[in-house]
Structures are given as C-alpha cells and as structure tokens.
C-alpha cells in the first residue's frame, strides 16, 4: 500500500516526504479532472469527426430521400394558376414557402423540408424530402461551430483542456512505463501519421 500525505493522496516518493511543489500529484489531479470534464464533448466531437470526415460519401447532417409520383400534366399558364393546380393534384393543403421555374418544363415548389420538382408536360413529380439526422446534426453543428458567438469561446476552452490533457498525460506515470521508458516510444509512434502526411500526402 502506498504511503499518503496529509491530504490522503499517495505520496509520489512512495512514503518519503518531498519538499516543494508536489507537481506530479498536481499533474495527475489536473489530468484526472480535465478527463472527466472533457469526456462529453470529446465523445460528441469524435463521433461528429468520423461523420464529417466521410462527407464525400454521405451527408452527415441530413437524410435526403427522393421519391417519385405522377399527376396529370400541368398546363403552362400563369405561375399562380400552375401552383394552384399542382397543389390540388398533389393534395397539398398549405401554400409553398416559394416557387421557381428552372426551365420552361419544370416547376419547383418549396416547403419546409420538402421540395416538389414537377415536370409540367408529363406530370412526373420528384418529391425531395430533407430530414436532419437526429443527434448527429446537433453534434456536427457544435463541432463545426455553426453557432459561433459564445460557442467559439467554449470550443477554445475545450481545445485548451485537450492540450492540457495531452501534456499532463505524458507525465502521469514515471519509471519504466513513463515518458522516459515505454511512453517515449509510444509518443514517438504517435508522430508517425504526421511523418506519413509530410512524406506522402503533403
């Protein structure tokens, strides 16, 4: 059993009292408490990081679905009349947020979360629905700092906490398993991805 000082924490010298600032004890305490404080955001940022990293393969914020239906062809008349006819045929009770005609054959109706692309001559309709991915959408908003304002400061403080976690982590253990032993090799191994980037990807 390790000896302890008057605060109840183990003495770094294994029983022998040391003079001056007990820096290793403070280092462990800072590392431990920052670890608890940063856990929630680290999990959120890590999940969001993986999601955003693969943005070329999928949309990490929204689930977009495209379905098709057909209505009777819509005559090319005044915009208001075309919108009214299309709404009636699609049984849309509410008026659209806005509308647009990208070309003479197409009418687009914009609703919150849904866009209707109507091919006027054929009556073919593409219904494009956009739904935010639950939880992941919010995590990405925080990770990419879309909120700006106060979140910029919170994210800065969190980044500073991560920096401290990394630095204090190097000095938690001492001896054979610490930074002067096995820890040095593992820390050096952690630099390998950076070397790989410098040599092959930059």
């Amino acid at each position: 059993m390790a000896a302890s000082d008057d605060t109840g924490a183990p003495s770094p010298a294994g029983g022998a009292r040391t003079r001056g600032i007990p820096w290793r004890r403070w280092n462990i305490a800072v590392h431990r408490d920052l670890g608890f404080l940063a856990a929630a955001l680290t999990i959120a940022y890590a999940i969001s990081g993986i999601a955003v990293n693969h943005i070329a393969d999928w949309n990490p914020n929204y689930r977009v679905s495209k379905t098709f239906t057909t209505i009777a062809p819509v005559a090319d008349t005044a915009a208001a009349a075309m919108i009214a006819t299309t709404r009636e045929r699609l049984q849309l009770a509410d008026a659209p947020r806005s509308s647009f005609r990208p070309d003479p054959n197409t009418l687009q109706l914009f609703y919150k979360g849904t866009t209707y692309h109507v091919d006027l001559p054929t009556g073919k309709v593409m219904v494009e629905a956009t739904v935010p991915r639950p939880v992941l959408f919010e995590m990405n908003q925080l990770h990419l700092n879309h909120a700006k304002r106060a979140w910029t400061w919170i994210a800065d403080i969190y980044a500073l906490a991560l920096l401290l976690l990394a630095v204090t982590g190097l000095f938690v253990l001492k001896g054979r398993l610490g930074i002067t032993g096995r820890g040095a090799w593992l820390t050096a191994a952690g630099l390998l991805p950076v070397v790989y980037w410098l040599v092959f990807l930059k």
Partner: peptide, 20 residues
Amino acid sequence: SIRFKVEDGVITFPLDAKGK
C-alpha cells in the same frame, strides 16, 4: 439563377434554406 459559391467550411448553408 446564379451560383453563390463560398469557401468550404467557412460558410455552410443548411439544406433547409431552400425556398428561403
């Protein structure tokens, strides 16, 4: 219509901005 291109990651428009 005209394309309004912003720098990746600097500005991100949400998909639900359509129609606004």
